[in-house]
């Protein structure tokens, strides 16, 4: 049980790092693109939200696994 909690905590931290890097890179790319081409900001924004949503999806699935670990459902 305690190991499950530990695993969940570490897992959540790693998820945060991964999602943070991923979404940060998307934001960087999007802002740079908008600065370069302000007239295309609408399309860039849509693509940015979409991609960020995908990354968030992965992160949240990871978070659910962490919750499962913390709850001890897996073992």
């Amino acid at each position: 049980m305690e190991l499950g909690l530990l695993a969940a905590g570490i897992g959540a931290g790693i998820i945060a790092i991964g999602a943070g890097i991923g979404i940060g890179m998307i934001g960087k790319g999007a802002v740079e693109s908008i600065a370069r081409q302000p007239e295309a900001s609408g399309d860039i924004r849509g693509a940015m939200i979409l991609t960020a949503a995908f990354i968030e999806g992965v992160a949240l699935i990871g978070a659910i696994i962490c919750i499962l670990l913390a709850l001890g459902v897996g073992g």
């Binding site: 049980m1 659910i64 919750i67 499962l68 709850l71 001890g72 459902v73």
Partner: peptide
């Protein structure tokens, strides 16, 4: 405790 968590967890993700 284990049991209660399990129940709560299963209701959460069921």
């Amino acid at each position: 405790m284990m049991m209660s968590l399990f129940l709560a967890g299963s209701s959460l993700l069921s």
